[in-house]
Design a protein around this nucleic acid. Sequence first.
DNA 1: CGGGGCCTTGACGTGATTCAATAAAGGTGG
DNA 2: CCACCTTTATTGAATCACGTCAAGGCCCCG
Lengths: 229, 229
Amino acid sequence: MENNKEVLLPRLRQTPLFAAWPEDVIAPLLAQSRPLTLESGDILFAEGSSARSFYFLASGRIDLIAAAATGQEKIVEIIQPDDLFAEAVAFLGGRYPVTAQADAATTVLEIPLDLFVESLEQRPLLMRQMLARLSMRLHFLVKELRHLSVESAEQRLVSYLLELCPMVNGPTAIELPAKKAVVAARLGLTPETLSRVLTRIRKAGLIEVERRIIAIPDPLALRRWAEGH
Amino acid sequence: MENNKEVLLPRLRQTPLFAAWPEDVIAPLLAQSRPLTLESGDILFAEGSSARSFYFLASGRIDLIAAAATGQEKIVEIIQPDDLFAEAVAFLGGRYPVTAQADAATTVLEIPLDLFVESLEQRPLLMRQMLARLSMRLHFLVKELRHLSVESAEQRLVSYLLELCPMVNGPTAIELPAKKAVVAARLGLTPETLSRVLTRIRKAGLIEVERRIIAIPDPLALRRWAEGH
DNA sequence: CGGGGCCTTGACGTGATTCAATAAAGGTGG
DNA sequence: CCACCTTTATTGAATCACGTCAAGGCCCCG
């Protein structure tokens, strides 16, 4: 796949954030941006380092990781192609609150934050949009907090599967966005526990697992089952 | 204590959010606001209900609670007097992501969201400020996520105590912002566990506990001790 | 066919919860 | 001011969910 700026532009314009932006604002922003390629395992930015850019994921996979002093790691979010990330740090201090690490060969578009903020400054409509975006992330994190603190491994996994689920009232199948060890970290579990939980749900007849593909014959039944575990 | 609007105004003006606001913006906002009084246990707003107002806590205590289907509850944040809360919901959907419950006799000032957003619309500087505020909350939640997922009960409690700590390199004492059961829920623990952890740290000679007052002779030593637990 | 990720499975250990009983503190009315 | 009752906090024993450690199987690639 070509990942130069010309190819990326139309995809960038389709993101929720940039969809409404006029051409004369995007153009100079893009002129200052550049594509970066990463190997699996490469660190794009480290937690606490000063933030000068945000990113558009063109291809591959990025994990946003919060590490503790003990070396333990929690994946806060798994970034997918066509997602924007780290744009929210622009308005404060300017330090990344998480580490961004590629877990596959990856291409990102690096967009300078200062120019981005400047573009925003005189356009209340765009600012309004950014506010909505941050608000959405806030809701997402509150939901995550709830999942982590008051739900069991089963409930967390089921919630996660159902969030990936396009339709909620018919048989469907989903693909895990990364290898199981990464998904486990995303859910705050060890790979072993994830594996066990998956087989438990499978043996209850609620899902079928085929590598990264998970079939869900009846999402509602799955949700109901999770309530009692 | 009088809690009418006239008394509240100067306190409201001292909040980080409103400090920079010109009088002609605050005045109409306040004209549309009204004080509410709550008993301990009263629900100010429920998770998922449509959001028409945000609030300024004049006196008492409010817990922001995220509940799971099982009835388990996680306190996301303990609101203190002179704090603003729920202002971040304004920019999206308009549903509260958490439940707000008084855990003491409480007075809040109810401020209508629509008017607030209107005030913001034509004032990029204020919007910029709101963005910074949301960004800050985002960082806070990411930190919380890390605490919950990769830290032990000891580490969580110590982090929490040190965050309440005004000075970090001398002997100091802090007061827990609520009864221990509430603090426990805030930390994602049961009251029993909190009690045990407190005695463990106390017996290690790192704190002294006197009801809600906790003395910390050497905050740095406390932090160091937590690393290995 | 072999080697190396990736995933699964089992036995075991551990930290935190649960349940239950007790103790301490605080508020209330006599 | 004290007896009483309620709320809050502590402690102990049993249990459980999840993590850790270690071994083995699967699948894909050369």
